[in-house]
Design a protein around this nucleic acid. Structure first.
Lengths: 190, 190
DNA sequence: CGGGGAAGTTGATGTAGGTTAAGAAATGAA
DNA sequence: TTCATTTCTTAACCTACATCAACTTCCCCG
């Protein structure tokens, strides 16, 4: 059944009884997002966390010069949301777009809060998830401050080997923090 | 009593009974850190979260060229730790140093876990804390990718007005991601 | 309260990476 | 398969910020 990937994802950090699994699943919705379709746009209020089962999403912002900056990729087994907007329920700055046809499982903000009431273990689950995400983001800040573009690229290759073949170069360039032109030059020099 | 600042910090997100407050306090330790003294050094395993009551700490890494990069400041009412090391209990890369004589309240990793057992509400507290920290860090990544040094400086001034007068310029420069020389020039042109 | 090390300033010069532009290659919708 | 649209490449030139060095000012600790 289609929720297995997600149940395994959850099982990494907390144990659920069969009954709890059913309660959990009752809060979930499935959705298909076609390539290039937006799951969330700048200025909207983020009402869902999305868990990708197939395909790939990207979260990005657009700066005042119209340049896109990729904050995160969400391949299968990853969660994505505009955390700022989800928490504050204010309009966010993040766009979330499908890089290919993608299946997601949605958990709404309100269902997530119900879940915290019904199965407090989920506080733990999302705490741990958020902690891991925080560590990754802190490392990225350090990398951006202290490494050259080439070093950041090498780290990206190590950390996300499956994504490298999968993604358009310009998306990786944007994540690394360089222009597509410079990224191309960087790759073709050695 | 010296735990009031911390109890207020906690009360922002969860409500504790008097009994729960006592249990919480029983897990805490106080410590004084003298100016320039290290609370945590690169390569150590981080065993404590620290909550600052007076003074100021800074968390920073040192890159392969010996250059320091400030990840965070912790003035009063802030938590600080090497999250990577605290979670994984592996040697971390963060240094945490007192910028002035500082009083902290410590919560050890093991006491934190006991707290989760004894008062599950603390799962919620630290989830919310971590979420807020994550949002701040994501915004910083976007800022580093899309803004000039001067724009990042202006944002820093808005966001941390009290720190501006308080900190040596070179520390702010390092947080912003520029050299002290460039930071000085930037401030003195207009 | 005085001296020494740290912090800040200023100038000359260097460089990683950006910008603009134009063509080549890949890709996807019909 | 075809054509239109992205994506990628290459080249010339540009700029934000770094580096190095010498000087001044600050400030803390004995």
């Amino acid at each position: 059944m289609p929720f297995n990937l997600l149940l395994n994802n959850v099982a990494r950090y907390i144990h659920l009884t069969d009954n709890e699994k059913e309660i959990f699943i009752s809060h979930l919705h499935q959705k298909k997002i076609k390539r290039k379709q937006f799951f969330l746009s700048y200025g909207e209020i983020c009402k869902y966390s999305a868990f990708v089962t197939t395909g790939c999403l990207r979260g990005f912002t657009v700066d005042k010069n119209g340049i896109e900056h990729v904050l995160s990729f969400a391949p299968p087994d990853w969660w994505i949301a505009d955390m700022y907007s989800l928490i504050s329920q204010k309009p966010g700055t993040l766009n979330i777009e499908a890089l290919e046809d993608t299946d997601v499982i949605l958990l709404s903000k309100t269902d997530q809060e119900k879940l915290y009431q019904e199965i407090p273990k989920f506080e733990r689950f999302f705490r741990i998830l958020t902690e891991k995400s925080l560590v990754t983001n802190q490392q990225r800040i350090v990398d951006n401050l202290s490494l050259t573009a080439e070093e950041r690229y090498n780290i990206f290759c190590e950390r996300y080997p499956t994504l490298i073949n999968h993604l358009p170069q310009k998306q990786i360039a944007s994540y690394i923090g360089v222009t597509p032109e410079f990224f191309s030059r960087m790759r073709n020099r050695h």
